[in-house]
Each structure stands twice: as C-alpha cells, then as structure tokens.
Design a protein around this nucleic acid. Structure first.
Lengths: 131, 131
DNA sequence: CTGGATCCTCCATGATACTG
DNA sequence: CAGTATCATGGAGGATCCAG
C-alpha cells in the first residue's frame, strides 16, 4: 500500500462523516474525546508510559472509577495500550498508541491554550460580570 | 506594548497555571472547554457569524437550554461576541472574538481528527470486543 | 425570533468496600 | 497494586411554557 492510500482513505472518511449530525458516529467520537478526563489522561501519557498509580497521581482529583473507565474506553478505541506484567504485586503500564499520540498532540495544544490564556479569560469574565 | 510582551505574559501564565491540579483555574477552564457543545459551537462559528436559529440548526441535537447556556459561558469568557439588532422580530448574531478564534483553530483540528480516524477507531473497537 | 423560567428525570460521577 | 462491585446523589440536560 502506498502512503497516499491512507491519506485518501482519510479524505474519504472526512466526506462520509459529519460531526455536526447528532446520529453520526464521528459526532459520538467527538463527544467522547471532548471529555476532561480524556484530555488530561491523554496529555499525561504523552510524557511517556505510566503505571496506573502514577496516572492517578498525575491527573489529580480523578476517582479510581473514572480513571479506570476512561482508560478502558481509550483502550477500546485503540488510543491507549495496556500492558500487564504478571508479578506480585501486579504491574500495569499504560502508553499511547500511534493513533492515540496523533490525537494527543492536538489535545496538548488545547491544554496549553487553557494555561496560556487564563488572564485574558479572567479579564473578560470581570468585564462581563460588572455589567 | 511590543508583541513580545504578550508572548512573555503567556509564558508566565504557563508557569503559573498547571491544568493537572484540580483546584487550578486553568484546570477549570480546560474542563469547561472540554465540552461537546462548546467544541461544536466554536467550530460552527468558525465559518462566520451565525444567528441563534442558524446555530441551533447547524449544531444538530442541541436543546435551546444548552445552546443558550453554552453561548452565555462562551460570551462571558470572551470567546464569543453577541450582537443584538433591535428589530421585530429581534435578531441576534454570534461570532468569535480573536481569542475565541485562536481556540477554534485547535478545536477544528480535533473535530477533523474525529472525522478522519473513525475507521481506525472502529477496527480497534471490534478487535477489543471480540476478545 | 430569541431566549428566560420551571420542572423533572436520569445518568455520570463520587464514595465506599472488597479482591486477586 | 490495580482494579471490580455496589450504592447514593447532584447536577447536567431535556421538555415545556411563556414573554419581549
């Protein structure tokens, strides 16, 4: 397969799927990844492989349940790889797949944006509230 | 003000705010914009100014309540501008601010990603489910 | 046409306890 | 250590009605 084939397939996909339509699968996918835990987990894993416990520390405030749930859905969608090392105690490592990493780059940009533009948002809020 | 000043301020902000911390304002901002309605509305407005009714059609499936609520929060955060034309019936136009547009570009990338990589995600899901 | 106000429902999420 | 199972609940979000 030439590399153009993959690109062509993506172009086709862009024509087939329209995230504006509520029933469209891509819309559901967008809904899924437009999730705070997803973005935080993805960005965290961008820094390399992490164990479950490392992740829960890195992503402060996430409950066990939500972390596990988020990781499962990411694994199912092929964005995250889960590798179990059978030892005592057991060790589980999570890392991004190539597909996951391609999304992570975009999400990292969003996280950076949020951290970079807080001040402007604060100013806007004050102006809005004093009105 | 030189352009470097704005850049320097952003660098400083990146050091001050860490979205991993649950209590950090930037984390709250990230939570806010990691929302399906936010991303869909932002991307829709990227194509230009839209009236309220046009938006509700463009973003299929959104309820009046959520659309209004989303627009209010975006307006408050300085991402969206709301312009009212006093006529009968009244006409309200929404458009992105420069700040909003800077975020929209990132979100558009995410939307495109979702539409482009559906197939790969589907394949991954099947493989995961048949296991 | 563009919402504001209300009511109501259900689901996402958190807390807790337990286990291989 | 890395979860699973269960229960409880707050709040997101939908439906409806009304108004400028």
């Amino acid at each position: 397969m030439a590399t153009t084939t993959a690109a062509a397939r993506r172009d086709q996909a862009r024509r087939d799927y329209d995230a504006y339509l509520a029933a469209c699968p891509s819309r559901m996918l967008l809904d899924r990844i437009s999730d705070k835990w997803v973005s935080l987990v993805m960005v965290a894993l961008g820094e390399g492989t992490l164990r479950y416990s490392e992740l829960s520390r890195q992503v402060a405030g996430v409950s066990q349940k939500m972390l596990t749930q988020t990781l499962r859905s990411l694994e199912r969608d092929g964005l995250v790889e889960r590798r179990v090392t059978a030892s005592v105690p057991v060790r589980v490592d999570y890392s991004l797949t190539p597909l996951g990493n391609s999304l992570r780059e975009l999400m990292y940009g969003v996280k950076l944006w949020a951290e970079s533009h807080m001040e402007e948002v604060f100013v806007a809020r004050e102006r809005y509230d004093e009105r």
